[in-house]
Design a protein around this nucleic acid. Sequence first.
DNA 1: ACTGATAACTGGTCTGACCAAGGGAGGGCA
DNA 2: TGCCCTCCCTTGGTCAGACCAGTTATCAGT
Lengths: 240, 240
Amino acid sequence: MKNKVSDNAESSVERVAADLRGAIAAGIYIPGQAIPSQRKLAGQWQVSRATVREAVLMLELEGLIETQHGGRSRCVNLMEPYLNLPLETSGGNRELQLQVLEARATLEAEAAFYAATRATDEQLQALSSEYARMQERNAGESTLAKAKADLMFHMMIAEASHHLLIISFSQLFYNRYFNAIYGVLSQTLRRYGRYPEGIAQQHARIHKAIQQRQPEVARDAARTHILYTRQLLERIETCP
Amino acid sequence: MKNKVSDNAESSVERVAADLRGAIAAGIYIPGQAIPSQRKLAGQWQVSRATVREAVLMLELEGLIETQHGGRSRCVNLMEPYLNLPLETSGGNRELQLQVLEARATLEAEAAFYAATRATDEQLQALSSEYARMQERNAGESTLAKAKADLMFHMMIAEASHHLLIISFSQLFYNRYFNAIYGVLSQTLRRYGRYPEGIAQQHARIHKAIQQRQPEVARDAARTHILYTRQLLERIETCP
DNA sequence: ACTGATAACTGGTCTGACCAAGGGAGGGCA
DNA sequence: TGCCCTCCCTTGGTCAGACCAGTTATCAGT
C-alpha cells in the first residue's frame, strides 16, 4: 500500500530541493549572494544537472532564489516585497529614528542570540577580525568610515545568526535606514567628539558573549546596546 | 535597456508552460483526464523533453496538473479542495435537493452559454449523437439508466464549455450530488410514470440553441430547465 | 587610470539513453 | 465462462555530454 502522506521514497529532485531550501533557510547562502552554479551543485549532490535544474526551478517558483541567464543564481531577500515603507531618512526625522532604533533593538537582540548559538568557527574568527579592525578605525577616521565599520560589525552578527528572516530583514533595514541609524552616531560624535564610553564597552560585551557562545548574554548585550543608543538620541533631542 | 515587465524574449520553457496552461484553462484537457505524454508534448512543440519537463513541473507546482511515476500526468480538478461539503445525499433531504438545484441552475446556464460559444464542431456532433441516444433510451429503460443518460448529456455540455472552472465544478457537483439531483427525477417518474412533457422539450431547446450557437438562448433554456425541475420537486413535496 | 577585447564562467536548451513504475492485453487457471 | 496473473509497452524520473547564449572578470593597449 502506498502512503501518500509520509512517503519515504521521495524523488531525487525533491531531496535536492529540500537540501537547498534548508541551506538557504539556515543562512548558508545569504540573500543577495550567489549560490553555487548548477554544475557545482550537481557535483556536490552527485546528481545530474537536469535534476539540479528542476530543484532550482522549484525554489525559484517558491520565490526563494532568482536566476538570470548568463549571470549567477542568487538567493532573494524575503522581506523585500513587504518592506516598502517610506524612506525619507535624511536622518532628520527624530520620531522615525526612535522607532527604527526600537525595532532594531529586537532585531539585533535576536541576531546576537542566534549568532552565539549557531555561528560557525570561521564566522567567529571573521567577526573577531572585524571587531579588531573596528577598534583600530575608531581612532582617527572619518565619521562615515566609523559608521560603516559599525554597520559591518552588526551585519556580520546578523549573517552569523544563520536565520534567513533575520538576515533578510537586517539587510533591508541597514540599507534603508542607514542614515536614520547613523545620524544618531553622527550627532553623538559631534556632541562628544568621540564614541561615548558605553558603546565601545557594549560592543565588547556583545562580541565576547558571541565568541563564548552565550546566547542569553549576547541577546541582552545587543538589546542594551541599541536601547543605549536610543537613549543618547533622546538626550540630544531634549538637551540641545 | 532591459524591460523586466513586458519582456518579449520569454524562454522556451515559459512559452511551453503558457501554452499548456492555456490549453488546460480552455478545457482542451478535462480535469481527471490525462494530458499527452511528455514525449508527445515535446514533439508537438518542437522542444526537448527536458524543457517540457520543466514546464510540466511549473504547472504541477501551480496545482494545475499532477504527475505519477509510470502513470500518465493528468489535469487536476481545481475545485476539489474547496468542495468538502457534507454529502449525506441519499436523495431524501429535500432542503438540500432544492439548494443543489438552485446552484445547478446557474452552473448549467453558464455551461450552456459557453458551450454555444466555444464548442468545437466535433463536440457539437458528439453532443448531437448523445442527445439522440438519450431520446431512444427514454423509451423503456430503468430509471437509473435514464438518470445516467441525462447526466451524460449535461456533462458533455459542461465539457464543451471549454471553461476550466465550470468543468471542474460540474464534475464534482454531479459526482457528489448525483443522488440529490436524480432523486428528483426518480420521484418524478414514480409520480407521472414518465418524463414530464416539459423536460423533453427543454432538453430539445437547450440542444438546439447550442447547435445553432445561440449563447443567450442556451443560457436561458438551461436555466429554465433546472428551475422547472426544482418546481417539480416542490410540487411533489407540497402535494404528496 | 581608463577602455575595450577576450576568455572563462553562468544559465538555457538539446539529444539520446537507461531505469522504475503503472496499465493494458493476453494467456492460464478455476 | 469468468477471474487472476504475467508479460510487455508506455509513462514519468534520472542521467551524461554537448552546444548555445548571455554575463563577468581579466588583461593588454591606450
